[in-house]
Design a protein around this nucleic acid. Sequence first.
DNA 1: AACCCTGCCGTAACTATGTTATGGATAGCA
DNA 2: TGCTATCCATAACATAGTTACGGCAGGGTT
Lengths: 244, 244
Amino acid sequence: MSTKERLVEAGLRLLESEGPESLNARKLAAEIGASTMTVYTHFGGMAGLYEALVRQAFVQFAQALAAVERTDDAVSDLLTLGLAYRDFASASPQRYRLMFGVTAPGSGIAAPHDLTEEGTPSGIPEASETFGELRKAVQRALDAGRIDGDDSVAIAAQFWSMIHGFVLLEMSGFFGTEGGGVTAVLAPHATNLLMGLGDDQAAVARSAQSARERFGDATTTTRPGPPTADVRRGPRPRTDRKRT
Amino acid sequence: MSTKERLVEAGLRLLESEGPESLNARKLAAEIGASTMTVYTHFGGMAGLYEALVRQAFVQFAQALAAVERTDDAVSDLLTLGLAYRDFASASPQRYRLMFGVTAPGSGIAAPHDLTEEGTPSGIPEASETFGELRKAVQRALDAGRIDGDDSVAIAAQFWSMIHGFVLLEMSGFFGTEGGGVTAVLAPHATNLLMGLGDDQAAVARSAQSARERFGDATTTTRPGPPTADVRRGPRPRTDRKRT
DNA sequence: AACCCTGCCGTAACTATGTTATGGATAGCA
DNA sequence: TGCTATCCATAACATAGTTACGGCAGGGTT
């Protein structure tokens, strides 16, 4: 493995094990037994190294999503993709935050997406592959007639907003600390969105059950902890329409 | 105004005008004509100052949301709340990112929410007021029979996930740079979510139109820029249900 | 009136971290 | 052999968070 690759590998490993504050030139260089100059030889500076970390993280992300098996139930695939998405983010929240270019005061580090030329939606081309996986799954649900619409990009963006927001709120602790947010918030949200897009309630329920089984019980295995009454769980019962 | 208040005020002002990298002790102290020691006298350090900034920003946020008028159309109120939410975030993306405790590598600054004792959903009590505004609007929609369900907290969390994710993706540039994401992504998403929650299509359309009128044309006035083909715009036409 | 304590603040120094200047070592090649 | 490019280490520099120390004003105590 080249020095360049070792730096990126060590960066992602340290990020997960010791937190973002350990991502500094001296500690990183010591981790691979080199001097801080290697950062400048290979990446031009810490900003370049961060960008390389983001790219590598997005490669891992795309791989994790691509590993989700494609079945003949496009909605089940879409939901399983969502569970895999959330699992990837939960596995290393620091990595996920790094990927989406969040900045903090005091660090002279701009968001990676701000480093690129104007007009580019995202400076990280690898990021678009993540969205592409989502978009293709939506397109297959459209083709199967499960949901209505003519713009898979716009619909995929809705799913992306949903899960991106959920994941970030979850890792900020707004849904409690024991991972109950998936069944209490994310799953009902996905169900509601799919039904709003035209899918049938029973079909969604079947696909959701399928996704749960495909993904195993990994959806609730974030951290063990005492149950809280923060957010009640369970799917919301559907009733008849009450029109005003 | 006390030195403490002047520091917080200057911090939020500099954050908006010169970006997060200008939020350092020396520049901040110079801004109010003092030495860096004032930061330690009043806040114990930069971390304490950041926490004060977050608290103040959440106070502003709650005020902005509370300023939305409550009408007899609870869904219109909810949608208008969403537009105000997005507008607040767009007005100062750096402030919004600061509020939600995002961390960056290289800064020794932990997320504000991580600074508190274990088990607390959020270390910033002011943040819960924001969610409370959302939850009350959802409760009124439930009471009016517009949407179904028995847990306003879980439903409000879905709306929060939606708009939080949208806002962050939008400010990362994933929906283009000219603010078309609201009509292309956020509005359809809200519509779909509401319909999934049991509201009627025509009723949602009326409430959405009402919210648009109430909020004026502020929804598309982010930044002028060349049109992009990233995400197609315009509301997705609703078609008849295609049942399998 | 004299004394002392407390809070607020400035000066200066200390530490950590990103960065740069400089030079050496090695590989490849003409 | 000599040249060049690449990679890398040492050391120094710049910036920013932090701390040590002392001054000063205000108020209460003796």
